[in-house]
Each structure stands twice: as structure tokens, then as C-alpha cells.
Simulated scan of single mutants.
Amino acid sequence: MSELEEVCQHIHDKISSLQHMLDLSVVELPQNKMRKLGQELFGVERLMEEFEQCVGRQKEKLKHLKKIEELSHTDLEDVQHMRDNLPAHMPKKKDHLSEPVSSQSEAADVRPAQTENIRKSKKSFIREMEAITLPEFESIPQYMKGRVSYDQLNAALQSINTAVTTKYKIVHQPVKTLNNHSRKLHQRFKEQEIKETKAQYFVVEEDIREFAQVKVDKRFQGILNMLRHCQRLREQRGGGVIRYVLL
């Protein structure tokens, strides 16, 4: 039973008691009974004051609960909006292949086997472009975007990432483990490398068409311009080949 209900019940009991006493007042009451009646009336008066205070506290609680309800409703709307507008492509956290050695003594403790493992992990690592964020997309001039949507731009970005991953999986493999087709691709990749792309990850249009199954048409060229604008890649020309280098 709540505080308010308890006070109400107590007042009801007191009033019932007074009612019985008043019903008996038709008969002349002894002096001690009259004093008892006065005490009961005074007690009821105090209870009424307590009741008013209790009602005031309950009103404050109700006011506080309404504020909480309004805040909860606002938070719920915000969460619903976030859920309905969650981007299809979220930026990925950059990979950290190895942590820097904090001291010379720690550097001295690194064994050759551990160094070899680090080399292998670096060799197997393939860089990818991070997804375009919504603010970045909105910063692209409208004439450059045309009718390309946010999701379409990130889908094209992922296609290029697929081409990069496929290419460098072949590049990182020992030539002797490759089949004839992959060896020809490996040779082509090496021939396309120039001094400016040393230790860089890049693809050419042929890679995008072959590995990502994407048509590199005028529309896709516009998407490449948008990716350059967002500093995801740059062009490197040479030998009649356009290389799209990841930044």
C-alpha cells in the first residue's frame, strides 16, 4: 500500500470513529468522553494537514515522472531515427599491424622468429579504402555527384576494394605456387608498377573490370572523380596506363 493510500485509510478510520461518537452525542456524554472527542477532532485536523502534504509530494513525483517520460520519448525518437538512417557502409577502423617498441631493452628482446612473423603479417596485409561518411558525401559538389547516391558511391568504393584485394592476394603469393593464369596476371601487375607506385596499392581499369565485374564507363569515371575529391585515391599516369592509387 502506498503512502497516500495509508493516510487515506487512517483518515477514514478516524472519521468513522468520530461518526460513532457523534451518533452517541444525542445522549449526554461524560466530561472525559467530551475530551476524547476533542482529541479525536484535533487528530483528524493534523491528519488532514499530513494528507495535504502527502498529496503535494505525490504531485511532485508525478511531475518528475512526466519529465522522465518526455525525455525517454525523445531518446526513443532519436534511436528510431538513427536506426532508420543507419548508413549501409560504415567506416572501418584502421588496422595496426604492430605496436612501436617502447624502449631499447624491449627491442633487444625481439627474437628473429617474432620479426619473421611481423614481416609475414605486413606482407599479407592488403590496404583498403575506408567508406565515405555522410558529411564527406554532402561536401562533394552537386555537379560532381550528379545522380549518384550515397549508397551507390560506397558500393563502387567496395568494388574497387574487391579488385585491390584480389590483385594483391596474387601479388603476395610466391610465383611458384601460382597457376598459369595467375602467373600471367602476376607478370602484368609487375609490369604496371613504376617508381612512383613503389610500396603503394593501386589498380587499373582492367583490374576493376576483371576482378570486380564492374563496367568502367563514363558514370564510373565520375565516381572515381568523387573518390579523388574525398581523398580516397589519386591518379598516377605513365606508360599509357592510368593507375588508381589508394591513399
Rank of each mutant, 00 (worst) to 15 (best):
V203E: 00
F189T: 04
H181T: 02
E191P: 01
Q200F: 04
Q173R: 11
T165L: 11
Q221A: 12
V216G: 02
I140F: 07
Q173M: 11
E191N: 05
Q213N: 10
V148Q: 12
P135Y: 11
K218M: 11
K215D: 02
A156V: 15
L157W: 03
P135L: 11
N161I: 01
N179W: 08
S182W: 05
D207R: 07
A156I: 15
I194G: 03
I208T: 10
T177I: 12
E196L: 05
A199Y: 13
P135I: 03
L185F: 06
V203G: 00
K167V: 08
Q236V: 00
A155I: 12
R188F: 09
K218W: 06
S182Q: 15
V171L: 12
R219N: 11
I170M: 07
A199D: 15
G146M: 09
Q200T: 08
I160P: 00
E193R: 02
I208N: 00
M144R: 13
N225T: 07
L153S: 04
V203Q: 00
P135S: 02
D207V: 14
I194M: 04
I223V: 14
E138K: 07
V203P: 00
K195L: 06
K195P: 04
L153G: 07
G222Y: 07
T133W: 01
R188D: 14
P135W: 07
L227K: 05
Y201P: 06
S159N: 09
A163W: 05
T166R: 15
Q158I: 02
I223R: 01
N225H: 05
S182M: 09
T133H: 03
E136M: 04
K215R: 07
R209P: 02
K167L: 02
E193T: 00
E205W: 02
V171I: 11
F137Y: 15
L185K: 08
K190S: 13
V214Q: 01
N225Q: 12
D217P: 00
K184S: 04
E206G: 04
A212M: 11
L227A: 07
A155F: 06
S139D: 14
Q152S: 15
F211V: 09
A163H: 01
T133Y: 02
R237Q: 11
T165R: 15
D207M: 03
M144G: 10
L224C: 09
L178Q: 13
H181I: 03
P141T: 13
R237M: 06
K218Y: 08
K195S: 09
